[in-house]
């Protein structure tokens, strides 16, 4: 009576599946991201210089054995500032993506579960948030709560919520209509249990993809805000801030600081975008 037997072992190893979807370029991008993260974490092991302390006598030095990438206008070691700057840049973007992902998933699950009026209401709130350009919302937050990485990060996270929520809502809605969710619902399980136990794991890939794509955008936006002097405050090292502080030296013929920091931003953002795109196959994710 039984149909075919289960001769195959468990199909699709997860690791292999991920590597397959990323492809060679995606794997390279993953390596770049891992390298940057590792460098940021191990900054004190790589350089012995303090990123915030310099000597005016040593300003604008070229690369040397002592200062591998030279020094900036205050005589601070550029390599040290780039390494420690990676910490702020990555951490800020990570917090934005984490908060936006959590907020977006929550709104999506609520909208999908209750449907109808609640779904329409969530849709209107998202429309309202969409109306504000991200940076404007962040600048508004700065105007109200003052400058600083914390304020800017939370403001950007809120600005990113509609992008994640919109994508996740449509996938959550698709899952909501499937039999397994309906079967769980008709057992009298609560919306919270069904959403967390059944729907959330099935929209996790889209959450991850959106996070990878948004990570790049968040880095750019945070760098822009730091460049404008609204985010990270000196003397803390940050890539966006370094581009900004290097622009005076640029005119004096010392382009290193802005260029190195700019290259770091571009490489990191590109790497995250490639990963996000590969994961989502261009369909899912933040705003691809």
């Amino acid at each position: 009576m039984t149909a075919q037997t289960l001769d195959r072992p468990a199909v699709r190893r997860r690791g292999g599946d991920l590597a397959e979807r990323l492809g060679p370029l995606g794997l390279a991008a993953l390596a770049v991201v891992a390298l940057i993260t590792l460098a940021a974490l191990c900054a004190p092991l790589i350089t012995s210089h303090d990123p915030a302390v310099g000597s005016v006598i040593e300003r604008y030095q070229g690369p040397s054995a002592e200062h591998l990438l030279g020094t900036d206008q205050s005589g601070r070691d550029l390599l040290a500032r780039l390494l420690y700057g990676a910490r702020t840049s990555l951490l800020g973007a990570a917090v934005v993506v984490l908060l936006a992902g959590a907020g977006g998933a929550l709104l999506a699950l609520v909208a999908a579960w209750f449907g109808r009026t609640v779904d329409a209401l969530v849709g209107r709130v998202l429309d309202l948030l969409f109306a504000f350009p991200n940076l404007l919302l962040a600048i508004l937050a700065v105007a109200v709560f003052g400058t600083g990485l914390g304020q800017v990060t939370v403001a950007l996270a809120i600005a990113y919520v509609p992008y994640t929520a919109r994508v996740l809502r449509s996938v959550a809605l698709r899952e909501r209509r499937l039999g397994y969710v309906q079967a769980a619902e008709l057992q009298g399980l609560s919306g919270l249990v069904v959403s967390v136990r059944h729907i959330l794991p099935n929209i996790a890939p889209q959450i991850l993809t959106g996070a990878a794509i948004n990570f790049g955008y968040a880095m750019i936006d945070l760098a822009a805000l730091s460049f404008l002097g609204l985010g990270v405050q000196p003397p803390t090292a940050d890539w966006g801030l370094m581009v900004s502080q290097g622009k005076d030296s640029l005119l004096q013929g010392h382009p290193q600081q802005s260029v190195f920091a700019g290259v770091c931003i571009v490489v990191a953002v590109a790497a995250f975008s490639v990963i996000g795109e590969r994961l989502g196959g261009r369909k899912a994710g933040g705003r691809a």
């Binding site: 499937l178 039999g179 397994y180 309906q182 079967a183 619902e185 008709l186 057992q187 009298g188 399980l189 609560s190 059944h198 794991p201 099935n202």
Partner: peptide, 27 residues
């Protein structure tokens, strides 16, 4: 209400059309 649905589920159960969608693919 939810409690009534739970009580009702002990009397009546449903099998859905799409076999593929009626089971959570991750469980």
């Amino acid at each position: 209400r939810r409690a009534e649905r739970r009580a009702r589920a002990r009397d009546i159960q449903m099998v859905f059309q799409d076999p593929n969608g009626s089971l959570n693919r991750r469980r």
